[in-house]
Design a protein around this nucleic acid. Structure first.
Lengths: 143, 143
DNA sequence: GTAAAGACTATGATATATCATAAAGGTTGC
DNA sequence: GCAACCTTTATGATATATCATAGTCTTTAC
């Protein structure tokens, strides 16, 4: 049975969470995806990252990050100022509008996490985390 | 920290697995995605499902399933014969080529699972499963 | 029987995932 | 200085995710 396979349950859990999270953001009238939110959050704290660095932090592909940055910039949530010492790169800064939307999304995300973890104890979470890390590690490319 | 959040670890675990799994299939010279494989597997055992039924089983969207079915049919892995008693639907049957690719992928998938779960005990898995199910349930729409 | 309601599939629009690669800039070795 | 190499970004191609909706067919209510 499909349902007996742990990877199926894994996939289902994270997808359920993402759907629920996006729905709550949409319902709040906020025009941003959770992936965009994640990237914007990272940039809030580090404005000197390459696309590759960002991709590593959010565990995405550089190409995906490139397109998300372009989108965020087009939407005015991010500004890209050319860096003087490296003609390839830009300094990425969250704009005023970006800050506003981050602030608006933040409490929603916290609520979502609480909702998603309802009925799960700290001890159980403490078991869960290393297992997930182990799976990721087992599947990581040889480097 | 991003890394301290269980959902991040969840996302990373399943993505790592998917990347690894797809890489092993590609390396074996098999031209199929793991999502297509999943759908094909379901159809192997049930050829009388609607797209909605299939979507539920593989936890995807009906629209995604529609496109995957079109693709699988275009590639000759699936055949769609109109059903006499319902002009909207077709009977979906895995073709000979479909059977061959399923058979070729099967052992790879088993190896991948083993690899991904290396160092994780049965008891740990027994803890993991209900936690994942609980998260999915907590996030499920009100119905 | 027929009109309304419902079920099923297909598709448009937009976003993300992934690989591969092109294009441009930077660094190193000499 | 320059050639070879490396880094960074952008983009093409294809697949999937999601919502919304159109189009078709079936069922239900009456």
């Amino acid at each position: 049975m499909l349902s007996s396979i742990v990877f199926y349950a894994l996939d289902k859990a994270i997808r359920s969470y993402r759907r629920m999270a996006q729905a709550t953001i949409d319902r709040a009238g906020l025009d941003i995806t959770i992936d965009q939110w994640l990237v914007l959050r990272v940039l809030l704290e580090h404005d000197d990252l390459t696309q590759h660095d960002i991709a590593e932090r959010v565990f995405k592909d550089q190409a995906s990050v490139a397109r998300m940055l372009a989108l965020l910039t087009r939407r005015g949530l991010l500004s890209a100022v050319p860096l003087p010492h490296d003609g390839r790169r830009t300094q990425l800064r969250v704009t005023e509008a970006g800050h506003r939307i981050l602030a608006a999304v933040q409490p929603i995300v916290l609520q979502n996490r609480t909702k998603a973890l309802a009925g799960i104890s700290e001890e159980e979470l403490a078991v869960l985390r290393p297992l997930l890390d182990r799976i990721a590690l087992n599947c990581a490319p040889p480097a």
